[in-house]
Amino acid sequence: MADQLTEEQIAEFKEAFSLFDKDGDGTITTKELGTVMRSLGQNPTEAELQDMINEVDADGNGTIDFPEFLTMMARKMKDTDSEEEIREAFRVFDKDGNGYISAAELRHVMTNLGEKLTDEEVDEMIREADIDGDGQVNYEEFVQMMTAK
């Protein structure tokens, strides 16, 4: 299944994987998964984290390695993001709930994920998604960005 991913997608997933893999040992533990999910405003229980890991832990060693992570991402993409997942993601970014993602809100979430971005990089990300040019990202623009192939 992971063989249907483009090189660009694999590179993006590698970057995402390293955000989860806090200690850089090449595997994601339940603790690391929990840290990232909490930084995104989720509050999973230990059991939920274990279930999430077990779902993709092909070799049964209790952690997720990069090939397992790729399989999980490929699977998720095949079920292409349901509207509800996209709306949920939008809410994570839209901290003040005004229906727009500002540069400050984007920077806040990315920083929580451990991504240190310059102001230019954040502005560039907003510009790429900002179709109507108002300097922020509304829900429609967010959907376009998330579903762009």
Rank of each mutant, 00 (worst) to 15 (best):
D3E: 12
Q4T: 04
E8T: 08
E8R: 01
E8P: 04
E12P: 04
E12G: 10
F13L: 11
F13D: 15
F13Q: 02
F17V: 09
F17C: 01
L19H: 04
K22S: 10
D23A: 12
D23R: 08
D25H: 07
D25A: 14
T27C: 02
T27F: 03
I28T: 09
I28S: 08
T30W: 00
T30D: 05
T30G: 06
T30V: 03
K31C: 00
E32V: 13
E32M: 03
L33Q: 00
L33P: 09
L33A: 14
G34S: 15
V36T: 15
N43V: 07
P44W: 08
E46M: 15
E48T: 00
E48Q: 04
Q50M: 01
Q50N: 08
Q50I: 15
D51N: 07
M52G: 14
M52D: 15
I53V: 13
D57A: 07
D57T: 08
D59V: 09
N61F: 03
T63D: 04
D65Y: 13
P67L: 11
P67C: 03
E68Y: 05
T71F: 02
M72N: 13
K76R: 12
K76H: 09
S82L: 12
E85L: 05
R87E: 14
R87N: 08
E88V: 10
E88A: 07
F90A: 05
V92L: 13
K95G: 04
K95P: 01
G99E: 01
Y100C: 10
I101S: 04
I101W: 01
A104I: 01
E105S: 03
H108G: 01
V109M: 10
M110W: 03
T111R: 01
T111V: 00
N112P: 09
N112I: 10
G114R: 06
G114V: 05
E115S: 05
K116N: 11
K116V: 09
L117E: 07
E120D: 09
V122A: 12
D123E: 08
E124V: 12
E124N: 12
E124T: 15
R127H: 03
E128K: 08
E128S: 00
I131R: 13
D132W: 04
D132K: 07
G133F: 04
G133M: 09
D134P: 09
Q136A: 09
V137K: 03
N138R: 02
Y139C: 09
Y139H: 11
E140A: 11
E140V: 09
E141M: 05
V143F: 03
M145I: 07
M145V: 10
K149G: 06
